[in-house]
Design a protein around this nucleic acid. Structure first.
Lengths: 231, 231
DNA sequence: AGAGGCAAAATAATCGATATTTTGTGAGGG
DNA sequence: CCCTCACAAAATATCGATTATTTTGCCTCT
């Protein structure tokens, strides 16, 4: 790669393709269940077939893409059951991780959490809010001495935001006082109060879940996305 | 693929390579941290570079292989911490899954559990005991309405048996009365007694963990495997 | 008219070769 | 004597084309 290449492209062609495809899927640009033809993607991303293929393999690990034995790839289907499962697992696993993280609290960890929160608040409404929001949640649990658990949480987080985008992004997401919820979790975590932090995180998820589940019930746009076009 | 091809090879070259590499890694034939050179593996498995590459990508999802940005692949490292984490996560997640599985018990499920147990007992000492043992454990939790959770359990199971092989297989594994442990779990599950099944499963893991951890303490062969050759 | 099967097209999987990157080695300078 | 830089060798990543598989459309036969 040329050293002068300015585009946000670090890493190999595979990595680029991975990030771009991931974004297309998470944001719903590539629809659930849509067939992913190598040739089409190759042209769209202007790269070779090998990087595409490898990127799709990587996305398979993230459960964003399904591989059909000799019939290529397609984006993972979505369903109410899948959504509920993700929500439930997140609550369980992040609670677990949060408790372990606080149990092993250090000053470094605490400062990172504060920073992550600050950055998230500052970026409210911005383009990279989503990323920073994840950053905050991951920072909270980052001190759990359990890399595998953390990776599960990260993966579930990504699966979840896909549903958020399918539900019409987080546009009117701020109806609730999410800021206050975040702040109170931060405060409990910094105070090393695992029970309180856990309780507040749990409530945060409960509300988020109710919010998104609500979009389901009312003949919403989400249903169209979910069951409309499966070309 | 030729229709007359008799070898246990269904599926694509990639799938074959995946299964064979997976076996080589889990059984310790490919040592922890060992560099996986495409060219070497290509010759060893007598296939092309592309299938090898894709198989390694798939194994990355299973956490059996690490991908180093532009420096190829190597088998995942092992460590006492990693082992303990796997053990702990398995206990937590399988307990969760078991309770959900029993809560949704059906006759089909019950019969599958009984069958899986029978097959495992029958195969004691046989070549496919390992596979059937996993079959039993997965059958227990299979009724949990949570495919993602089940997949986490399956993955953790595989990571765990890798350590068992590294500890010198399960040769003298039968010192404990594992049969009795399994039977008692089966009995509790069939009786729909979630608490008792959970308690017995937990104890089963505790004993297994102690057994394997014991191999660690005493200047064992495991340490040699773990810290000996990292070529 | 419908079912079944054959042929053609589309698509995925695989291969062989090329380009890029990393790693190892040795000479020159501090 | 050690460190740094440049070059050479090795290995990986990527490309373009070939091969194998699946799907689609059409035709025949009942």
């Amino acid at each position: 790669m040329n050293a002068l290449d300015i585009s946000g492209s670090d890493g190999s062609a595979t990595q680029q393709a991975y990030r771009r495809l991931r974004h297309l899927i998470v944001t719903g640009d590539l629809k659930p269940g849509e067939k992913l033809k190598i040739e089409v993607l190759r042209k769209r991303l202007d790269t070779g077939a090998s990087p595409i293929r490898e990127a799709l393999s990587l996305l398979t690990s993230d459960k964003l893409v399904d591989r059909l034995d000799q019939r290529g790839f397609r984006t993972a289907e979505v369903s109410a059951e899948n959504f509920q499962e993700i929500l439930l697992l997140r609550r369980t696993l992040e609670d677990l991780a949060l408790r372990e993280s606080i149990a092993n609290a250090t000053q470094d960890w605490e400062e990172n959490v504060v920073l992550a929160h600050h950055r998230m608040v500052k970026a409210k409404g911005g383009d990279d809010f989503e990323e920073l929001h994840k950053g905050f949640h991951m920072a909270l649990i980052a001190n759990a001495p359990s890399p595998i658990l953390l990776q599960f949480c990260s993966q579930l987080y990504d699966l979840n935001i896909r549903y958020r985008y399918l539900a019409g992004s987080g546009l009117n997401y701020q109806l609730r006082d999410v800021d206050e919820e975040h702040a109170s979790i931060l405060q409990a975590a910094v105070a090393r109060d695992a029970d309180m932090a856990s309780e507040r995180l749990f409530k945060h998820y409960q509300l988020t879940g109710a919010y998104l589940a609500g979009l389901w019930g009312e003949g919403s746009a989400l249903n169209a996305e979910l069951f409309g076009n499966k070309n």
